[in-house]
């Protein structure tokens, strides 16, 4: 059942990256689609304002893969959650990404949806973005004017707002290797056991003397908690860390959950993170 008027969504299908970038520069308000798992749902439900649409599916040969380059992992803009889940290097070195892809949507969504779509969609509840924050991923942006690279942690400027310019497309993300011996922690707290949007989601990486934590669904964007990270890195105990966390997180009540629950669960998750990643543990 589709309650949108399809004729209001003229569709562009670029055959090359160059053509895609030219269209993006030349057509106002052009909405790129990779898997379409967000856009098509909005379209079906009549929630997508009429706009021209750019289907990127023919760019799969250039943008579809996952590869290694100079020790980093490069994930193309059209790589799906399923690609991520099953890639041997991801499975070996980036367990948070495997887990995040596993808990996103259903298998059908994972087969179509892309990691880059999850980033660019800008939802603070995105399940893979905290993992990318925790791994310090870089986002590569292309336009007819050239290329630039932005840390994923600098990509968001507000609720569903990003630094992406009107003429830019994300071509790939680059993820540096995690430190040797680092411990990884990921947990999604959803509204049910599967096919859920998160109430709280957290990804954390703990190295010998560094900690990176990233949280979803507790603020207008995916959130880092640097004071808490610093406290842990400098040897604070769990009670101190949990108290610090409360000073740099102010979640909201919404249709899925409450501020109080989100804060309390985040604190419990932090305790679990500390326990699971404890150097002696």
């Amino acid at each position: 059942m589709i309650v949108s008027n399809a004729v209001r969504y003229p569709t562009y299908v670029p055959a090359t990256v160059a053509e895609a970038l030219e269209q993006k520069a030349g057509v106002a308000n052009l909405l790129p689609i990779a898997g379409g798992t967000e856009v098509m749902v909005m379209f079906n439900e009549g929630l997508l304002a009429p706009c021209p649409v750019q289907s990127l599916h023919r760019l799969a040969p250039e943008w579809g893969g996952i590869r290694e380059a100079e020790g980093s992992l490069v994930i193309g803009a059209l790589a799906t959650y399923t690609d991520v889940r099953h890639h041997p290097v991801v499975r070996e070195r980036y367990p948070l990404l495997v887990e995040a892809a596993r808990v996103t949507g259903a298998l059908q969504i994972q087969n179509r949806g892309t990691l880059v779509g999850n980033i660019v969609n800008g939802s603070p509840a995105a399940d893979t973005v905290p993992a990318l924050f925790a791994y310090g991923a870089q986002v590569r942006l292309l336009s007819t004017r050239g290329e630039r690279t932005v840390a994923v942690t600098d990509f968001y400027t507000g609720y569903r707002k990003t630094v992406l310019r009107a003429d830019e497309l994300i071509s790939e993300i680059v993820i540096p290797p995690p430190a040797d011996g680092a411990r990884h922690y990921y947990r999604k707290v959803g509204t049910r056991a599967a096919q859920a949007i998160s109430k709280v989601v957290v990804a954390g990486v703990r190295g010998r003397d560094s900690v990176r934590l990233a949280w979803g669904s507790v603020g207008p964007t995916t959130l880092r908690t640097p004071k808490t990270e610093a406290a842990i890195a400098s040897g604070a105990d769990a009670d101190e860390a949990v108290a610090t966390l409360a000073t740099e997180m102010s979640p909201l009540d919404d249709i899925r959950s409450t501020r109080d629950y989100r804060l309390a669960v985040s604190q419990n998750l932090l305790r679990e993170f500390l326990k699971r990643t404890s150097p002696g543990g």
Partner: peptide, 27 residues
């Protein structure tokens, strides 16, 4: 356990299967 009709002025707000939560087979 999970089926929670969120009402605002008497009418259901969570009118999607993504936010009106019924158990999946995993639940």
């Amino acid at each position: 356990t999970c089926e929670d009709v969120v009402l605002k002025e008497g009418a259901m707000q969570n009118t999607r299967v993504t936010n009106y939560i019924i158990p999946t087979s995993a639940d």
